[in-house]
Simulated assay, not measured.
Amino acid sequence: MEAQVQRDFDNLESADKEIQYAAFKNILAVTEKEVNWAYEVWDQFLQDLSNRNHHKRSRAAQFLSHLAISDPDKRMLNDFPRLWEVTRDPKFVTARHCLQSIWRVGLAGDEQQEMLIHHLANRFTHCSDEKNHTLIRFDLIQGLRNLYDQVKNEEIKQIALGLIEVEEDSKYQKKYAAVWRNT
């Protein structure tokens, strides 16, 4: 692991919130592309998914989602249920951070993409009784759009448009459909 990345990981524990946030952003930026040190931190992030501190849970979920592209052993196929659980975190902001980044798991390969899409579609279909379900649905649709923009798989678009049709409230149906304009 490069020295700067190690410093950024160390700075996540800084007492200074600005230093923490800068380190967080730096790590997300570095993990936009494949890295060779993913397994050096993978197990710690898996543990942090259930940490008492919601900031650590949120960061771990986002980092693991980003590191999925750096997972040649396909650990994510087995570890995904633990990551997915954070999308139902008792702290809604933590759940939302996970929902907004989990689409990146679909960039790791066909198996991961299929698994992810299945979970996103199932959650969309069955979340109407959850608190904040309209925000959850929006994040799910936005995640599908983000994935589509990266991989250009028309099947993803058709799945998303089909899910949008399930929405009974026309106001939210329009809001979700807006995500897919210009495709």
Rank of each mutant, 00 (worst) to 15 (best):
H55L: 09
L107V: 06
N78C: 12
N11E: 13
L12N: 02
D73C: 05
A22I: 13
L67S: 05
W180P: 01
F63M: 10
P90I: 02
K91M: 13
V93L: 08
A108Q: 02
Q6R: 11
L135R: 09
W42L: 14
W37N: 06
Q112S: 14
V105Q: 00
A60N: 01
V151D: 12
H119S: 15
C127E: 07
V105F: 00
N78M: 10
E165N: 12
L144Y: 03
L49Q: 02
D8V: 07
E154G: 11
L135Q: 13
Q142K: 09
E34G: 11
K171L: 07
A3W: 10
H97C: 07
A108M: 01
H97T: 07
I117T: 06
L83N: 03
R57I: 02
L120H: 01
R137Q: 15
A22N: 14
L83W: 06
L12D: 03
K152S: 13
E18W: 10
K171D: 14
V105N: 00
K17M: 15
D73N: 13
R59W: 06
L163H: 01
I27Q: 11
W37E: 14
D149N: 11
E40P: 04
D110S: 09
E167R: 00
S70A: 06
N182S: 11
E32F: 12
E2W: 10
W103I: 01
D10K: 11
V93T: 12
N53I: 02
Q113M: 09
F45Y: 15
F45H: 09
K91A: 15
V41S: 04
A60C: 04
N11K: 07
R57S: 05
H66A: 14
K25P: 04
P72M: 05
I27A: 07
W103T: 02
R7C: 08
A60Q: 02
A178C: 08
N78I: 10
F24G: 03
I27F: 14
R181W: 12
V30C: 14
E167K: 00
